[in-house]
Amino acid sequence: MVSFELKRDRLLMRWKQQKFEWIIEPRYWRNPILWSLLLMVVPFFITGYPNILTMITMANLYAAIAIPLALQMTGTGRLNFGPQLYLGLGGYTSALLNLHMGFSPFFTLIATILICGGVSLLLSPITWIAKGLYFSLITLILPLAFLDLTFIYGDLFRGEVGLMGMSPMISLGRVTWNYVAYYYLSVFMMLIFLFVAEKISQSRFGITMAAINENEDVALMMGVNVNKYKVFYYVFPSIMIGIVGWFIVHTFRTFAGITYLPLDFMLKMLIIVMIGGRASVYGMIPGAYFVCFLEDSLRSLGTVNYFLFPIILIIVLVALPRGEGIYGLYHKRHPRDYFPVMRVRRE
């Protein structure tokens, strides 16, 4: 029998031996609602500036890569230097199936999930056999090796030129409408990723994640099946990153590994994670927006932006509390605005 119970800050639902709860305290919902609303109304103010809309869409996509990356880094207790491998895999899978087999975006999405899931599952044992610098080095090499493959098998991947002419995700008849639609889709994708990652980190899985991140041996001693969880935390975020690759393919309709697989793209992702604050997945969004807006506003200064941009990033990285990032800075001053969650190591 289902029964509901209203507590001061939450609604409880009981069904047989199961218990579900939803937080209803307004202060915990205020910030997410306000920010989500803001993201919803943004296009109305900048419809005349499709470039800014595209820039924000890209910031959403960066955040959608950084969210699973942060989850993975905490869940495996390792620093992944090659998340873009799955971006490339997802992108090329979608693009090739769309171009050569005529798969629609829906089916390329399914194929992307299967391919990224399969490949990441095959590679997941590296979370068992390597840690620290060794894990970082292995993950660093993988996307670069894939990049080489895109040149060696140029017939298929078209080398430095990449693939182009893939079918669009949606077509509303007018380009401005399409760009606004892409923006909303990117927001939804980012928010879904955020929601899923947040749910995971607050669940039983989240407790294991914190335990693995803190000390694998202790977690193992306490009865946590560390290897099983590490596989999950490697595979699941990899699929999420692959989905971003799929999104890029059907939005920009071109995909070249030379753009997304090299080291500098990964560095941007890691900087977003560090600036946003790797301790919380929420931080990835301000991190991505900060990096994108900063980069775009400095571009108008001319070639000076090429050294100003990294200098500012270094200053920000040094100035922000280690591991806490922009989100941590706010959270520290307004701790009561957020529902208390399991705190994980921030160094």
Binding site: N51, M58, E160, V161, G162, T254, A256, I258, D296
Partner: peptide
């Protein structure tokens, strides 16, 4: 992609020149 849209839709240029690697031109 972002700049191409700006040039054509906001600045209303008559022609766009892309003077860099061919993957940029393709995009």
């Amino acid at each position: 992609v972002e700049i191409y849209k700006k040039l054509v839709m906001v600045d209303k240029v008559l022609a766009v020149i892309i003077a860099e690697k061919v993957e940029m031109s393709a995009a």
